[in-house]
Simulated scan of single mutants.
Amino acid sequence: MKNAHDLVAEAKAQVPEIPLEQAEEALRKADVLIDVREADEYLAGHIPGAIHMSRGVLEFKLSGAPALAARDLKIVLYCKTSGRAALAARSLQAMGYLDVQSLAGGFDAWSAAGKPVASPQAPTFD
Rank of each mutant, 00 (worst) to 15 (best):
Q14F: 05
H52Q: 08
K115H: 12
Q22L: 15
P16T: 07
I51V: 06
A70R: 15
G56Y: 07
P48R: 01
R28G: 00
V8M: 11
Q93K: 14
A85R: 12
A86E: 10
A50C: 06
T81V: 14
P66W: 00
S82V: 09
L58N: 07
D126V: 14
E24K: 14
L103Q: 13
M1R: 09
A65W: 10
Q93N: 10
L68P: 03
I34D: 03
A23T: 09
G105V: 00
A113T: 11
A94T: 15
A88R: 04
A50R: 07
G83M: 04
I51A: 12
E10W: 01
Y42K: 02
G49Y: 05
A9G: 10
V76E: 00
Y97P: 14
Q22F: 09
A70E: 15
A88T: 10
L7Q: 13
A65V: 03
S54F: 08
K12M: 15
V15P: 00
V100Y: 12
E17K: 04
R84M: 13
Q14I: 00
D72L: 06
K2Y: 08
N3Q: 02
G49F: 09
A70F: 12
A112W: 01
G105M: 07
F125R: 04
S91W: 10
M53D: 05
N3S: 13
V15G: 02
K61F: 12
K2P: 14
G56H: 12
P48T: 02
D31K: 03
H46M: 02
A70L: 10
A44T: 08
G106N: 01
G45C: 14
E24S: 15
L7P: 01
K12F: 13
S91N: 13
V57D: 05
K115A: 02
E25L: 11
N3V: 11
V8E: 13
R55E: 12
A94C: 09
S82Q: 07
Q14Y: 03
L92S: 01
F125W: 04
A109E: 04
R71Q: 14
L87Y: 05
D40W: 14
E38H: 02
E24N: 05
L33T: 10
P120T: 09
A39L: 05
S91Q: 15
A50Q: 05
C79G: 03
A70C: 03
H46D: 04
G106K: 07
L58H: 08
A118E: 07
R55H: 15
S54Q: 04
V15D: 09
Y78C: 01
S82L: 08
E17W: 06
Y78P: 01
